[in-house]
Design a protein around this nucleic acid. Structure first.
Length: 568
DNA sequence: GCCAACGATTTA
DNA sequence: TAAATCGTTGGC
């Protein structure tokens, strides 16, 4: 074992090799930086040794639980190499004696974890530095955010940046040294000299700054112009400082343009540079309300609803006038179509109103005719003779009850039959009819059981209005016509009770007029609805919301605007 | 040379 | 067997 030690004298303590860069670590008794071979670490001084330098194979190391280098064992005789079991120890002893070695040794770094050591070691972990000793992920860095346990996609698959070994992890995986030193400087300015991993929160904060400064494009906020400790420019500068001696002249245009692109990117994203700084400098974010210096509430950008409303109002004042101007300057096809529709609707409304007036006139005219007809005297003889001359053997069937009836009384029978069945059903709505200026249109009798208003025409409602009892001397009075439509000026003067030709003629005429009035009212209602829709559409088109949310951009000024088409 | 992505390997 | 993480690769 002395032979081992003889070479180890210049050893412990990390040294830098000039061969592989200034920071390359030297190991083992041979003081070489090579780590691409089997190595074993001392559980006391944590120095690493090449297996071939101290004659320990990987196989032998598997049986060792704790291993100490010769130097440590010399200094502290209490340190003793411990093995997993007697058998394996014997085996190792045998192996070693076969090869002429006197002392067993060597835990593989891979075995380190298996044998329960608290300090992990590997090619990428020295097991000594702060990051190696760290057991918890920061949950803030990009590597953590990538992890499934933090809800990430598991694409990067790298260890937390704050757990990347200071010595052996690849530099690109660590938190940048420059940033750490900058952070220290920052802490010094606050008279709070603490070691970089003294507390977990400060690391999280550090990383937030690190990200906010642009290392993570997705969350970049800070402006390039801000002199933040980790702004993208500073970061680039920091990286360059390391190589500046060697490559100052090599600085090519490509990198310059790349840097420029990044700068532009950040400028676009960080109009509120100061706010970004505030945001990145701590867990609290500043309220975005105008002139507000309070901290924003959790899960909100504002300290209060008031601030949010103020900002929204400011936006409206800023954007709306411009949009209104734009709107007024550009023609709008939909607007013109809307105007045309409105014109058409107005025309139709006018026509409907004219028709309604006409029907009202006819309504009163009819009432006048009926009143005049009632004044006629009954002519007894003619009526009897006319009735007797008809064929009494003919029979027709009632459309309601299917009974065979004499044609003379068929109209009367069917009318009564229909009234009987019709009055057994109701035809109502929850609301009474409210038509201004309309007289005697709907029945509108309230039914307390069904809580509805009857919607039959009043003149045709057998349910709520019974035909009045006809006096014996009442004349039929139906106006007589020739060629179907031409009024003769005469009236049927047969007794009303006996006239089968004009049974209930007043009722039918009234119903005819009322039905037409109802149709016109429906038409007017439909036109009102159409007008309302068109007006709503036109109002919304140039409304606050539409103007704020939509904007037509003419990307190509050369192309003719479709709206200026000749057809218009 | 940096970095994202991903296969491969180790570990719990 | 899933999670952790290391090494390699290809694009930029």
């Amino acid at each position: 074992m002395d032979s081992e030690m003889s070479d180890m004298d210049p050893m412990p303590g990390p040294e830098a090799s000039s061969m592989e860069g200034e920071n390359a670590q030297l190991y083992c008794i041979c003081r070489k930086p090579d780590i691409n071979c089997f190595m074993i670490g001392c559980d006391n001084c944590n120095e690493w040794f090449h297996g071939h330098c101290i004659n320990i194979t990987e196989k032998m190391a598997k049986a060792i639980r704790e291993w100490y280098c010769m130097r440590c064992r010399d200094r502290n005789p209490l340190l003793e190499i411990k093995y997993r079991s007697k058998k394996s120890r014997e085996k190792i002893e045998l192996d070693r004696s076969d090869k002429g070695y006197s002392t067993p040794s060597t835990p593989d770094y891979r075995l380190d974890r298996r044998r329960g050591s608290k300090v992990k070691r590997s090619v990428r972990m020295c097991g000594e530095c702060e990051p190696c000793l760290r057991t918890e992920d920061c949950a803030q860095c990009d590597f953590c955010m990538d992890m499934k346990k933090f809800g990430g996609p598991n694409k990067i698959r790298q260890k937390c940046r704050f757990r990347q070994c200071e010595v052996r992890a690849r530099k690109m995986l660590r938190v940048k040294e420059e940033e750490l030193s900058l952070r220290e400087r920052r802490e010094n300015s606050h008279h709070r000299r603490r070691r970089y991993s003294d507390d977990y929160d400060s690391e999280a904060e550090l990383y937030r700054q690190y990200k906010a400064a642009g290392l993570d494009d997705h969350l970049a906020w800070a402006s390039d112009d801000d002199e933040l400790p980790f702004s993208p420019v500073m970061r680039k500068k920091a990286i360059k400082v390391k190589h500046v001696k060697r490559r100052e002249k090599k600085f090519d245009k490509k990198k310059e343009s790349r840097r420029h692109k990044q700068k532009q990117k950040h400028k676009d994203r960080s109009r509120h540079g100061e706010r970004g700084y505030l945001r990145s400098s701590g867990g609290l974010r500043q309220c975005l309300g105008p002139n507000c210096v309070e901290a924003a509430r959790v899960e909100s950008k504002y300290c209060s609803e008031d601030c949010g409303m103020k900002l929204a109002a400011n936006r409206i004042y800023e954007i709306l006038p411009q949009r209104i101007q734009q709107w007024q300057q550009s023609p709008c096809i939909a607007e013109e179509q809307g105007k045309k529709q409105l014109e058409r609707i107005r025309r139709e409304q006018h026509n409907a109103r004219m028709r309604l007036t006409e029907m009202e006139r006819r309504f009163h005219e009819l009432e006048g005719i009926i009143a005049k007809a009632k004044q006629q005297a009954v002519q007894q003889d003619e009526e009897v003779n006319e009735g007797d001359s008809e064929d009494t053997d003919l029979q027709i069937f009632c459309v309601s009850c299917s009974h065979a009836v004499n044609p003379k009384v068929a109209l009367r029978h069917m009318e009564r039959c229909y009234a009987k069945y019709e009055s057994q059903t109701s035809f109502g709505s929850l609301y009474p009819t409210r038509i201004e200026g309309a007289t005697r249109l709907f029945c509108d009798v309230y039914n307390p059981q069904s809580k509805t208003y009857c919607k039959r025409l009043q003149v045709l409602c057998p349910e709520h209005s019974r035909d009045p009892k006809i006096p014996v001397d009442e004349v039929c009075g139906c106006p007589l016509v020739k060629n179907v439509f031409e009024l003769t000026g005469d009236y049927c003067r047969v007794s009303k009770r006996k006239c089968n030709k004009h049974y209930n003629w007043e009722k039918l005429r009234r119903a005819e007029v009322d039905l037409e009035r109802v149709r016109v009212w429906y038409k007017l209602d439909e036109l009102f609805e159409q007008e309302r829709n068109v007006r709503t559409a036109m109002t919304n088109r140039a409304g606050l919301l539409a103007l704020m949310l939509h904007q037509t951009i003419q990307h190509d000024p050369v192309t003719t605007d479709l709206r200026s088409n000749k057809d218009r």
